[in-house]
């Protein structure tokens, strides 16, 4: 148990240092991409090139991703300061978000379905 906890803490620190590196790159190059995303790409590259072994970050990543929800509870509570956004016609934003979500799901899903069926046909012609 203590061993597991310390592994998770150390690996979260490794991930935290990647985040800091990402933020540093963002500031140094004056980019508009969030530093955490740069850190993510950085980590992905290090994993693919095998510079960083997966087991160095595996437990820490699993821990952070399992409890992802916890980390944005504090910011979400901040909605009490912005309740005016959803008053009056702002209420219309809710159906707008719903329709937009449905469009994304349909169009991206149908598009991939189309590509995959073409690929399947091609595959069956070849065999």
């Amino acid at each position: 148990m203590i061993r597991m906890v310390s592994i998770v803490i150390i690996q979260v620190l490794v991930l935290y240092s990647m985040y800091l590196a990402g933020t540093w790159i963002q500031n140094a190059l004056d980019l508009m991409i969030p530093g955490s995303i740069i850190g993510m790409v950085l980590l992905f590259c290090l994993l693919v090139t095998k510079i960083l072994p997966l087991r160095w970050i595996q437990e820490g990543s699993r821990f952070l991703l399992t409890h992802l929800t916890l980390f944005f509870i504090p910011v979400t509570v901040g909605v009490i300061e912005f309740s005016h956004v959803f008053k009056g016609k702002g209420l219309l934003l809710i159906p707008a978000v719903l329709v937009s979500t449905i469009l994304v799901m349909l169009i991206s899903g149908i598009l991939l379905d189309f590509f995959m069926s073409k690929r399947l046909k091609k595959g069956s012609n070849e065999t």
């Binding site: 979260v12 991930l15 935290y16 990647m18 985040y19 990402g22 933020t23 969030p34 530093g35 955490s36 995303i37 850190g39 993510m40 790409v41 950085l42 980590l43 992905f44 994993l47 693919v48 997966l54 970050i57 595996q58 820490g60 990543s61 699993r62 952070l64 991703l65 992802l68 916890l70 980390f71 944005f72 509870i73 504090p74 910011v75 509570v77």
Partner: peptide, 21 residues
């Protein structure tokens, strides 16, 4: 108090590289 939880958000985004990998 809650700001300490907020600090883990950055490394959590970095960890998204794990499922992608």
């Amino acid at each position: 108090g809650a700001v300490w939880i907020d600090k883990l958000l950055g490394p959590a985004v970095v960890a998204l590289a794990y499922p992608l990998y």
